[in-house]
Design a protein around this nucleic acid. Structure first.
Lengths: 216, 216
DNA sequence: GTCTATATTCAGATAGAC
DNA sequence: GTCTATCTGAATATAGAC
């Protein structure tokens, strides 16, 4: 089900941090990518090490040799960022988000992982809680800055002025954009025909930027 | 943690299908409410029948007597709608959504259940998939209508005219509103100080309605 | 460095006592 | 009508063979 990508070993040769692979990309890496696929499709709690192992024709213990525990494997998967399309800074980032939504619909993989796991992480004692809390904090900051960048200079001050609760309009807009993307992913996974992630994301970004460019 | 609602037996007397409750609201009902709380806090896959049973000082089998299986219990929990604040029709519904977001932040219970479970349901073979797919379809319809109601009559036609992909702007806005509410819930659960669900929800609704009231 | 075989814990569900 | 005691299978992790 996950063999959509034909090339098994696609990465730029001469990457900066290849850890001296005298053999070829070690088993560890195969496990990592397989685990990412399976976690994305079934969530963390609902995935067993046997599921992952079966896809590689090994036993569960084979997986555990490379990563000490299932939780460690999850952590490693989350750390494995997808650097194939680095997020640009500044106001270009907002366009990048739409592009990302577009790509996600074509390739239900990488970021489906984040949509499914982030919601799962919000449950008690989930091992990825801290990771996702930090991630959202960073994202809200970056996207908040991107929103400010897109506003006309005359609106920036208002949008970056904290209200009585200490939160800024730009930050609120950033939280909204992230929330829309996550929430849409869930709706789309359940019913792909029903929503167009990219266009709805674009609509919300446009609407929010326009809204922050008014005084009312 | 869950004793927010003081009245344990709130249902209209003379309801059409009261199954002759000679005693008082049966164990079944207690189990149902406890299960809802625990599913909300820990998700479905990560909750064991023992967890639920422990809170009632009984054994897992005690739970299974009332509901044939864990999946049946989940289904029953989902069916148990919270009728304490029925959603109004028409454009009032949008205000109701903001109110709902406000209440959710105060009482992390009922709809936290939906936020956590809906995302979990998007994973393979989850027992609640169909339930959530249907729920989202209905919600998009209702909220789409509410959006149209709020628009000026002169904009309604444009907003309800399907584009080349067969989807209407009002439907897109509806999907966006739902997505924002779900996504915010996740961010809020992970970091309650970081986002104000109600105000962000209001912001997005305002922005979308304003956006759909322009020609561009 | 890689994995098979095994131990241990805990899940969901069944049959039958109260 | 309600639940305790028990069975069966599957989960993660360990110890040690190749």
């Amino acid at each position: 089900m996950s063999e959509t990508t034909p090339a098994p070993d696609t990465r730029s040769p001469g990457g900066p941090e290849a850890p001296t692979p005298r053999k070829r990309v070690n088993r560890r890496e195969q496990i990592l990518r397989t685990a990412a696929d399976v976690f994305a499709a079934r969530g963390f709690n609902n995935t067993s090490l046997a599921d992952i192992a079966a896809m590689l024709d090994i036993t569960p213990a084979g997986v555990l040799h490379h990563f000490g525990s299932k939780t460690d494997l999850l952590t490693a998967v989350l750390e494995l960022r997808d650097d194939s399309d680095p997020a640009p800074g500044g106001s270009r980032m907002l366009d990048h988000l739409v592009t990302t939504a577009e790509r996600n619909a074509a390739r239900p993989g990488t970021t489906q992982l984040y949509a499914v796991l982030s919601a799962e992480s919000a449950t008690d004692r989930h091992p990825a809680q801290e990771w996702f809390r930090d991630r959202y904090t960073v994202l809200r900051g970056e996207i908040g800055d991107a929103v400010l960048d897109r506003l006309g200079p005359e609106h920036r001050e208002a949008a970056s002025t904290p209200g009585p609760d200490g939160r800024t309009p730009a930050g609120a807009a950033a939280a909204a954009v992230i929330a829309v993307m996550d929430g849409l992913q869930v709706q789309w996974l359940l019913d792909p025909e029903a929503v167009d992630m990219a266009s709805v994301t674009a609509l919300v970004i446009d609407a929010l930027v326009a809204r922050l460019s008014q005084e009312d």
